[in-house]
Amino acid sequence: MSSRTGPVLSGYIFEEEAMLSLSELCQSCQMPAEMLVKLVEYGIITPEGNAVRDQQAHQWLFQRSEMIRADKAFRMERDLGINFAGIALVMDLLVEVDDLRQQVYQMRIADQSAN
């Protein structure tokens, strides 16, 4: 296929691209709408603003990062057999763990340069 001399590919920052409607999210994730609605109900993915309360599902708009979350959720369900409530909890905890790791790392760096 491509080689070392291949062209330079220009990428986009995925998370900053235009938001997705529910049907576009279905397409990009290759998941049925029912599954995505379930993910919204469990708070695993969230449409922008107060959309869940005020709007119909067809008006929802999702940040691109939600697509990555939906994919992760799908894989956790498939590979680990976690149910949706469990996935929501795992994802929250993972975010927290990442934050803590970052803090520990920052503190270590500060310690190193102080000594």
């Binding site: 491509s2 062209p7 220009s10 990428g11 986009y12 920052i13 691209e17």
Partner: peptide, 22 residues
């Protein structure tokens, strides 16, 4: 297959963000 890609990194991308190559 092992593929080597040359990618222009989008300016200002943060850790944890994703580069999409269409």
């Amino acid at each position: 297959k092992l593929r080597t890609l040359k990618v222009k990194i989008p300016k200002g991308i943060k850790e944890g963000q994703t580069i999409r190559l269409s």
